[in-house]
């Protein structure tokens, strides 16, 4: 069966990617899994973590393992949109004639690391919007399509609040996941130190290519989802809205505004990938529950009740999931 081979290839590819990433990234297994899920699902990831936890290293290593052209954009307040997308420049050709030539920006890669994206101005941030959503760039009325697979991994540094521009909700919604990279454990720290004493460079090798990723993406889209699970996921997203009739008690109490329909799309798409990643051929409730936090974390805003009750966004999402499980029974 052709698909069976593809499934086997999928499993092998994922295993290989993980193996390679392990060489450069210590721990952070959940982050790695979710990043792989996002890539295969065709989504972008927002990574938040303190400096030095390995965000950039992860993306670099990933780029090597996927043998995909990789670029890094360090966002600063003075970064212009054209610095990201590219711009038309005037060039003299060999005949001395002046021509306008489009110089591609760093966004023209398969894998883009948008470092400290929240340091860029809203204007520059909005330039990323079209790119991340539509995988194309429009400059001077010319549209340039980005090569697939295209993946943006943006980072945020939570502790540097000065001189940052919070990402608008519209842009936040373009990220499939928001992942929190935590400070490594002591034993992991020791491994990091030992590893980087040898070399600071990423040692991951190319194990898959872009075509494979696209095949994996296509395969994952065929994973079946039963109606009950689909409804479960839809209720989870709908119950993040306090204004909806018969919504969850958690939403009524702790949420200011809820997630967009993109959250529902992201949940299902990523759940399919996760299922295949774990050797299953169908989406389960467990997949939905496991992806609820990374999918909803950046899409819902809590109100002062949550702050007052000292509940983080993750805590609120956990309550939402718990309530959704009860309602589904």
């Amino acid at each position: 069966m052709e698909n069976l081979e593809k499934v086997q290839k999928f499993s092998q590819a994922v295993s290989k990617i993980k193996e390679e990433l392990k060489k450069d990234v210590v721990g952070q297994q959940e982050i790695i899994d979710n990043v792989i899920i996002a890539i295969v699902a065709g989504g972008n990831v927002l990574l938040e973590g303190v400096p030095g936890v390995g965000k950039t290293r992860l993306v670099r290593s990933l780029g090597k393992a996927l043998s995909l052209p990789f670029s890094r954009i360090q966002f600063t307040p003075d970064l212009m949109p054209s610095d990201v997308t590219g711009t038309n420049i005037v060039e003299k050709d060999e005949n001395g004639k002046l021509n306008t030539v489009f110089r591609k920006g760093p966004i023209f890669a398969n894998l883009v690391l948008a470092d400290e994206i929240n340091r860029a101005t809203p204007k520059t941030q909005s330039a990323m919007l079209e790119v991340m959503q539509e995988h194309k760039v429009t400059v001077a009325n010319e549209t340039y399509k980005l090569e697939e697979p295209f993946f943006v991994l943006a980072t945020e540094n939570p502790i540097e609040q000065d001189g940052t521009y919070p990402l608008p909700e519209a842009q936040m919604d373009r990220f499939m996941f928001k992942l929190l990279m935590k400070f490594p454990k002591v034993e992991e720290l020791a491994s990091i130190v030992n590893m980087t004493q040898i070399t600071m460079d990423e040692t991951a090798e190319a194990v898959v290519d872009g075509a494979t990723i696209l095949e994996m993406r296509e395969l994952a889209s065929t994973v079946p989802v039963i109606e009950d699970v689909l409804n479960y996921a839809m209720h989870l997203v709908a119950n993040t809205h306090p204004e909806i009739e018969n919504t969850s008690d958690t939403a009524k109490k702790y949420i200011k505004y809820g997630a967009s329909p993109r959250a529902a799309q992201a949940l299902i798409t990523c759940a399919k990938v996760r299922a295949l990643l774990n050797g299953n051929y169908n989406v389960s409730y467990e997949d939905i529950d496991a992806l609820a936090t990374p999918v909803l974390r950046h899409r819902i805003k809590v109100n002062y009740n949550a702050v007052n009750d000292k509940l983080t966004i993750d805590d609120v999402i956990a309550l939402l999931v718990k309530e959704n499980k009860k309602l589904s029974k």
């Binding site: 065929t222 079946p224 989802v225 039963i226 389960s284 409730y285 467990e286």
Partner: peptide, 16 residues
């Protein structure tokens, strides 16, 4: 993990 339910619901699905 909903394997049996999926099998029943997609019993008529002839996709790979």
């Amino acid at each position: 993990n909903e394997k049996v339910q999926t099998m029943i619901e997609f019993a008529g699905d002839d996709s790979s």
